[in-house]
């Protein structure tokens, strides 16, 4: 009888351990497809293909073309903003800057902010903004693209709503998501950049993601 009891305890404890180690993976967001492929011995294999961020080409704050090559082998946080935004952007970037401070010495982490103000936020304006925010642009890129490209990547790939709206105070409306992308360009999380508790969760999830991809 005593033996059964101790076995039961071991079972329960190991269940907890398994449950815990399972929780250490972040979900993968976006659409997915199932593909049937054959391995080299001719056996059929079922693969899941996840939605990934497509190739892009934008100008950064130094007017240099920036593509996915800059983010190769790194996890990164992406968001959408504009420099003359007086509503949610300052709060988003105040919060994102605390994330940047935590990870700025980690070579596997980067940040990218896309401007949605294609009329005014030319690279020189972004450069000034980055300097005033006080961040290193090798680590945190600020990018400019034409309206179609930026708005399309925002909505289709980063699942963030951005819009021109002449009735809004600053002329645009957009969501304040901070989107976490893994080394395989898959979306692993989205956090409301205006809420400190969600930003704290982002920091924890980034550590989890880095450990997962080691």
């Amino acid at each position: 009888m005593k033996k059964i009891k101790s076995q039961l305890i071991i079972l329960v404890v190991s269940l907890f351990v398994i449950a815990c180690s399972d929780a250490k993976k972040l979900p993968i967001y976006g659409e997915r497809e199932v593909a049937i492929t054959k391995d080299k011995d001719g056996n059929q294999k079922i693969d899941t293909i996840y939605q990934t961020i497509p190739n892009f080409s934008f100008l950064n704050q130094d007017s240099t073309v920036i593509t996915q090559d800059a983010f190769k082998g790194k996890i990164y946080v992406a968001d959408f903003f504009f420099t003359s935004c007086t509503t949610i952007c300052p709060t988003m970037h105040r919060n994102l800057k605390t994330v940047y401070e935590d990870f700025k010495n980690n070579p596997d982490v980067m940040f990218i902010s896309h401007t949605i103000d294609f009329k005014y936020d030319k690279p020189s304006v972004l450069k000034k903004y980055a300097e005033k925010l006080g961040v290193n642009t090798n680590k945190w890129e600020f990018v400019y693209g034409n309206k179609e490209e930026i708005y399309s990547i925002a909505e289709k790939n980063y699942l963030t709503v951005v819009e021109e709206d002449s009735t809004a105070r600053d002329g645009y409306i957009h969501q304040g998501w901070l989107v976490l992308i893994d080394k395989q360009k898959r979306m692993r999380g989205a956090y409301d950049g205006t809420k400190t508790e969600q930003v704290e969760q982002l920091k924890k999830d980034m550590a989890t993601l880095l450990a997962e991809e080691k």
Binding site: T86, T87, C89, P90, T91, R94, K97, K132, L133, G134
Partner: peptide, 16 residues
């Protein structure tokens, strides 16, 4: 005011 000037009036970098 808080989104730019901060909850403790600390400002935001050199932006605010």
């Amino acid at each position: 005011c808080q989104n730019c000037h901060g909850a403790n009036g600390e400002g935001l970098g050199e932006l605010a």
